[in-house]
Structures are given as structure tokens and as C-alpha cells.
Design a protein around this nucleic acid. Structure first.
Lengths: 359, 359
DNA sequence: GGGAACTTGTCAATCGTTTGACTTGCAGCC
DNA sequence: GGCTGCAAGTCAAACGATTGACAAGTTCCC
């Protein structure tokens, strides 16, 4: 913690002192004055209000005036009047996880396209609930997108119940919080498992995070069902969390237990990354000694060693739909949910192969 | 692109229909009424205004009323009056890059601590400038933090010059945009180079991105100076960009050119990741055939194969200071700059080793 | 006992938009 | 020519907070 403050030399400062001299923000009244009409008419014309009654000539004058002044309506003033902020909140556990980064990108893009800003809230240990509730209560955002796997159901329900704005869950269902956008996690897990079975693996282990989140339960169900369907043995390994550290730990335990399984299904991209590290550390060669496949795709997979085979789910589309749903709710729609059921896609890379011929 | 819409059965809907029945947001007037005073007094007491003249008993009653009603001042109304939004904009090229994710995390945390929200803007191809300018012009944010390596100097200067709020550059200097917070990139690059020299490497290649950004120039200068200082040969390789793809491409070129260099200094974490991939693909063993060290540390380094040796710079501290600087400016301080000169730290992992004994 | 000086509050304007209600002028119609 | 009806706008009140200016009551001092 050390830093140097650099202040500009006074004479240089003087040279450009008036920083925004005269460049005050233009208001609707400036436009009205220039166009020679009342501000209310400017508002109606610029917003294409149905009740706007202005002659074509006047409309033209107003639009011209707005253009020449570079007028941009002040969202704060408008927000006060209309009780809207045109801002959405996005709750994420963190941004290091590439999947969440993908969600954030897609959500931001879509929000922008629909004229909304996006405020991020990553989980700050211990204070999440208060932080998020305050976002809504202070009127900072019109609604919340919650992708948090870390926040408990109870907290989420309380935030939603505070009633200061709609809350949409991303790939997670919480009793009492109706609207959600979910993926077909079961199908993704099943596709991954079927791929392993197709390669000839007769016994597959799946690493799953804590069992309370319904997302993980869906993946487990898909894994088990696909195993049964293919007629192969399945083992469920519980990891302490959903991140790389938890995946590594679980994988180490698996290796030391000398299981008969010849392949691992990682229920999360990060868990897969952790398992890859564990294999390297324990001297397990992938894919020679063991195949590994992870759910969720990321650009990063190509840069791992070996490149990791994954099953990609339409995460971006989910985020996109979630933004649309949330905006619908903000605009007064009745709650509904969306299941994004675009088919998962297998990205075969270097971490899966047929099992060693028994030896 | 396919999705199923799930609407709740009507009867279930009816059961919980009044969604936020009566739970309207409390205003300052509600508090005033409950405490039996004027709203203006509530405002002054709650904000500890110096002119607040209220008896201790009244203060107590006001605070009590606010507490029992769960009153939270409406930031929009307050923002209109005070011409403030208590929101900062953060401009980043993307969130996939772990370094930017670190910046985002630290900035968000600090902003929150100081009562500010953070709106993200990741570069949207071709429209960046308009997007960012609009954020300020619409009065959505009080100021901007720009960590964009993608946006040209000209664009940034125009945004800053629009004069609708201060702009702080993160680890980049732009002529005409005074305030910036920078790291000691030269020292980081020098430390990395010195480490390689210390291991016995006599010829080191450095991969750098395009030369227009001053950050990269500083790194190159540090690299070259440290090479001279250590009396070793240095080669500069130009990459097309700063990301993993560019790093990979540059490294492939390097390998095919059969350079005499026995070690690579990657000027960016992502470039290092790309180089690692290139080495794998080209059959170059790291660290046996070649050592690799990258500037900037990330948790991810431990998960790569081999784990990548890095030099960590205080990125979080930089973001933290940048938020403080921006808020200072918003509150009327004169522009200044900060150089975070905490010493870079070497994280020795598995990608560096002494060079092969000739042959 | 009559100001001066505090103390404890209240009043009303304001920030920049939006929007319901109203005005004015003109055309059309019987 | 007196009415209705419409087109083209204007007026003024919100939204919820902050803040400069003022008012009423009390204390204090000579």
C-alpha cells in the first residue's frame, strides 16, 4: 500500500482551468425556448406521445432544436416523475468464474439494447442481503436479476418479498420467487454422460456441489438418468462448493479412493478446471488414465492442458431472456417463467477418450 | 434459440395476487408525519446537516420514526435535487480477462463502501464512444472510470471533454485527460526479466501488444532496461493485441522462427496463457525447453499446466484508488493523478526454470 | 422591561420531466 | 350564425428530496 500523488503544475492548470465552461447540460426548457414552444410539447413530441398534437412544421422545429443543442433527457428527473430508473441490478457470486462473466456480458448487452443500464452486485460476504435489498429500496434499480448460487433461498425470498421491484432468478428456482429463467441442465448433464458412455466408459463419477440448489439437483438427475439409460455404473461425489477449489478437493479425494470409475463428469466448468489441476498434481494422466468432461463451455477450455471437453449450454441466451422477462415485469406483465431449451452442444476437445483397455 | 414459457395456473396466481399490497415505498413525509415534524427537519436531522436545529428529543423521535418505517431516502429524488446520482461508470474491454474481473471486483467493493453504485460498460464493438458519452450526458453516472485498452485516445478525450463529469483513466495515460491511476508497470516487467536472468537465461524474448498504448510502452521499457542491466540479450515480439489469441499467435511465430531465446516474458497475463497454449501445440516443453513468465497474477495461474509463474501488480489497490480519486473529483477536488508504486511481487510457479545446459 | 441572540422549527422554492386539464382558433355543419 | 369538434398548444401540478429564508418562543443581560 504505497502510492504517489501527482498534482499538475499550477501554471498548466491555469491554462485549461474552466473545465466545462458554459457547457452546462441542456434541459428540455432550452429546447422549448429555441423551438418557441412549451416544454410540455417538446416532451410529447420527442417521446412520440399519442396525445402529442403538433403540426409537422412544429415537430420539425422541435427535433431540430433538440439536435442542435445535443439535448439528452435527464434520466434522473424523468425517473423521479415516472418512478423508474431504467436500471437493472445483476447479482452474481463473482466475476472470476467465466460462466458468470458470460452471463454478465450477455445481460449487459441486452439491457443496453433495451435502453437500460446494469448495476452489478457481486456477493460481498455476509452483507449480501442488505446490499441487494437496499438497491431496490433506495430506488436505484427497477428490478433485480439474481444469479447467485451463494445466497440462500430465504434471503432471496425476503428481498423479493420486500416488494420494491420484481426479482428474476437465473437458472435457479426458489420457492416463493416465481419468475425464473432456467436452462435444461438435465439434458446437458445427460449429453455429457452419454458421450462418456459412447466412448466406452462403463463406470462414470460425477462431481456435484452442495445439494440444496435446485440447479445442481437437476444436473445430478440428468447424470443419473443418462447413466441408467446407457446401462453404466454411476457414482456421485459431493464437492463442498461449485468453484475450482472445491472441484480440486473433491477430485483429489476421488483419486486417492482408487475408484473403478474411468471418467469424471464435472457438473460445473470451474469444478472441471479444479479436477484437471488435481489430476496433474496426483499424476493422473488425462485423457489416458481418465476422461474428464465438464458442463458449460468457455473460451478458456481451449487454453487448458489438455483442452477440456465440455457441453455448452445457452448461457447467453438465458441471460438475454432474463433481461427481457425482467423488463416485462417492470412494465407490468404478470409473472411467468422461461425454460431455455435450446439443445446443449458437445465440444469435443482433448480431455476425453476411450478408456484404457483394462490393465 | 428455443424456449418454453411457463405461466402460473390462474388459481395459483389469484392466491398471491396483491403482490406488494400496501407496501408502498415510504417517503420522507411519512417519517415527518409519524414524528410530528416538518419534512425539512427530517432531512436535516437524518443527514446530520450542520444547520439542523432540533432538540435531542426530537432527533430521537425522527430517527425512531425512520427506523420503524424502514425509511430509505429515494436516491432518484435526492439525485435530482443535488444533481448527483451516486453512481459511477466503469468502462472495461471485457470481463473474461481475469485482470479486468479483478479490477471490477475491487472497484465495486470500494464504490459500495463509499455509498456509490457501479454501472458497467463493456466495449460494444463500434458503439463504445456513443454509449459511454450517453451514460454521462443522460446524467446516469457522476463520473467514469475507464480501463479500456480498446478505445482510442481520441474517443476518450472526446468523452472527457464533453464536460458532463470527470473521467479517470486506469493504468493508462491519455493526453488531455488528466486524472489517472497507474501502476509501476516498468518495475513489474523489470522484476520478471530479472527473475529470468537470475535463473541463468542469457537471451529473453518479450511479447508485447500494439505499441500505441502507453501502458505497454512502459512495460517494454522496463523489460529492455532490466535486460541491459542484467547484461542479457533481449528480443521484442509484437503481438496483434493483448489477449490470449494474440499471445498464442505471436508465440507460434516465435517458435517457428527458432529463436535463440530460452525464455519468454509475456507482457500480459492473457498473452502468457496464449503462449502456454502455443507451446503445447508446437511441442515445446515448459519449463524444460523454455521458461515463461507473465505480468499480472491471477488465481487461474495455479490451474494452468504447468502453473504459470507471474509477477503480480497491485491491481486491486489501483482500482480502489481510482474510485477514491473519481469521487474526490466529483466532490470538486482539482484533478491529480496517482501512481500506485507498491512493489510488484514474484509468484514463482512451474513455468520458469534454469535453461537447459546448452544442447 | 426591552432588545439581542439563540433555539427549535416551519415555509416554500427548486431540481428536470411528464401528464391531466384547459385554452384558443378555425373549420364544418345544419 | 350558433353550435360541435378538432387541431395545436399552454398551464400547472406532480414526483421526493434538499435548502435558503423566515417565524415563534425562550434566555439573558443591562
Amino acid at each position: 500500500m504505497s502510492a504517489r500523488i501527482v498534482r499538475p503544475a499550477p501554471e498548466r492548470l491555469g491554462a485549461r482551468l474552466p473545465p466545462d465552461a458554459g457547457r452546462k447540460r441542456k434541459t428540455i426548457r432550452d429546447v422549448a425556448a429555441l423551438a418557441g414552444v412549451d416544454a410540455s410539447l417538446v416532451s410529447r413530441v420527442l417521446n412520440d406521445h399519442p396525445k402529442a398534437s403538433a403540426s409537422p412544421a412544429t415537430r420539425e422545429r422541435i427535433r431540430d432544436a433538440a439536435r442542435t443543442l445535443g439535448y439528452q433527457p435527464n434520466v434522473v428527473a424523468r425517473g423521479l416523475r415516472m418512478a423508474r430508473t431504467w436500471t437493472l441490478g445483476l447479482l452474481l457470486p463473482n466475476l472470476s468464474n467465466p460462466m458468470y462473466a458470460d452471463i454478465a456480458r450477455a445481460a449487459e448487452r441486452r439491457a443496453l439494447d433495451r435502453g437500460f443500464g446494469l448495476i452489478f452486485g457481486t456477493n460481498v460476504d455476509g452483507e449480501e442481503e442488505a446490499t441487494f435489498a437496499r438497491l431496490l429500496q433506495q430506488g436505484r434499480v427497477d428490478g433485480l436479476l439474481a444469479a447467485s448460487g451463494a445466497l440462500g433461498d430465504g434471503s432471496l425470498r425476503r428481498v423479493a418479498d420486500a416488494g420494491h421491484g420484481p426479482v428474476v432468478m437465473l437458472n435457479r428456482r426458489v420457492r416463493g420467487v416465481r419468475p425464473s429463467v432456467t436452462l435444461d441442465d438435465a439434458a446437458g448433464a445427460a449429453l455429457a454422460t452419454a458421450h462418456l458412455a459412447g466412448l466406452g466408459h462403463r463406470h462414470v463419477a460425477g462431481i456435484f456441489g452442495v445439494g440444496t440448489i435446485d440447479t445442481i439437483r437437476r444436473r445430478r438427475a440428468g447424470f443419473l438418468a443418462a447413466g441408467k439409460e446407457a446401462g453404466i455404473a454411476t457414482t456421485v461425489i459431493e464437492a463442498a462448493g461449485l468453484d475450482a477449489a472445491a472441484g480440486r478437493e473433491a477430485a483429489v479425494g476421488f483419486f486417492r479412493a482408487r475408484s473403478e470409475a474411468t471418467a469424471i463428469f464435472a457438473s460445473t466448468f470451474a469444478i472441471g478446471v479444479g479436477a484437471l489441476r488435481a489430476a496433474r498434481e496426483e499424476g493422473v494422466r488425462i485423457p489416458d488414465d481418465l476422461s474428464l468432461i465438464a458442463l458449460h463451455d468457455s473460451e478458456l477450455a481451449d487454453y487448458l492442458s489438455p483442452p477440456m471437453t465440455t457441453v455448452g449450454l445457452p448461457v447467453g441466451e438465458m441471460a438475454h431472456r432474463a433481461v427481457d422477462l425482467l423488463i416485462d415485469l417492470i412494465e407490468g406483465a404478470r409473472p411467468y417463467s422461461v425454460v431455455v431449451d435450446s439443445a446443449p452442444v458437445l465440444k469435443e476437445r482433448g480431455s476425453t477418450a476411450p478408456p484404457k483397455v483394462s490393465g
